[in-house]
Amino acid sequence: MPYVYPIPNLLPQELVAEINNRMKSEPDAWVDGSQTAGKEKGRKKNLELAADSDLRVQISDAITTVLRDYQRRESLLFTFLAAPSKIGKFLVSKTAKGGTYGDHMDNNIMNRGTSEELRSDLSMTIFLSDPESYQGGELVIDSDMTFAPSFKMPAGGAVLYATNSIHRVNPVTAGERVAAITWIESEIADPFMRQMNADLLQCLNAVSQNAEQNPQLSTFLTLKLEKVRGNLQKRMR
């Protein structure tokens, strides 16, 4: 299976509550989401915050600020997994009863020809609604596979996945599903190398967290893993 990583609690609950309150206070900020679907227009039935709205920009900036807060364990994990060089502006969607986004694959290049152009190596969906507040609406990744995994994360949780995966949002049968979506250009273009880098960083992090139990072993493993990662980085250039 291609690159798929759930990240629970990527956003702090205070920010999730603030975002939801802001959206409730501006009910007229939503537009037809099919406007940004391109050739997939017929498969997309939802609403989005207008791209040029102040609310959308403020929400996007607030989320990006959290992602760059490396004092937070969750933000550091995102950085380990994505190795981001560019993070696109977040799109915010709302899918009500009957809404869906059928099987599709995101564009390989986002915002082509603009100052915000990026190669979309990774896609990320951040769930903003309490999963108990709506039915359906699962994010299904590799949806062309017989046993495709589906995700319905708690509010603030995210799923990071390879942009070249075919995926969909299952129909919402009750309530409203709100999510923020972005695309990421990684410092590591090769997906195989990116996977190895993420695995190594997670191992290094696990070793450092348990260093007190066996300092000598921890030092040995850290040096070895850093050696492997250093050699890997040389191959990525």
Rank of each mutant, 00 (worst) to 15 (best):
V159I: 12
N111Q: 11
Q71L: 04
Q209N: 08
S60I: 06
E14F: 02
S186G: 09
P191R: 07
G175L: 06
A62S: 15
M110H: 08
W183F: 14
T222S: 11
W183H: 10
G230E: 02
D69M: 03
I19P: 00
K94R: 15
N107G: 13
L15I: 01
P154H: 09
A83R: 08
N9V: 02
L139V: 08
R177W: 08
V66E: 09
N170G: 04
A155G: 09
A180N: 07
P154T: 14
M23Y: 04
M193R: 14
D190S: 13
Q195Y: 10
Q216C: 00
T100Y: 13
Q195F: 06
P27S: 05
I126P: 12
H104E: 05
M124W: 02
P2S: 14
E74L: 04
P191L: 06
L118V: 09
Q213I: 01
I181G: 04
A148W: 06
Y3S: 15
E116W: 02
G175K: 04
R43K: 15
L225M: 05
M124D: 09
L200S: 04
N111Y: 15
G38Y: 09
R68V: 04
E185C: 06
F127D: 11
A158V: 07
A148Y: 05
H167K: 08
S129T: 14
T173F: 04
Q35F: 00
S208T: 03
V4M: 06
S115E: 15
S34P: 02
G137W: 08
K227C: 01
L232A: 01
P12V: 07
G156L: 00
S115L: 14
V31I: 12
M145T: 14
P171E: 12
R56V: 00
V92L: 03
A174M: 09
I59Q: 07
V31H: 00
T222V: 01
F80T: 01
P84Y: 13
R43N: 14
S60N: 08
S25P: 00
L204H: 02
Y161W: 14
E26N: 06
F147W: 10
L81H: 06
M236E: 12
I19Q: 01
S93I: 04
S208K: 02
A82L: 04
S25R: 09
D103E: 12
V31F: 00
A189M: 09
I181N: 03
R194L: 13
M236D: 12
I126W: 14
L49H: 10
A162S: 15
I7A: 03
Q13E: 08
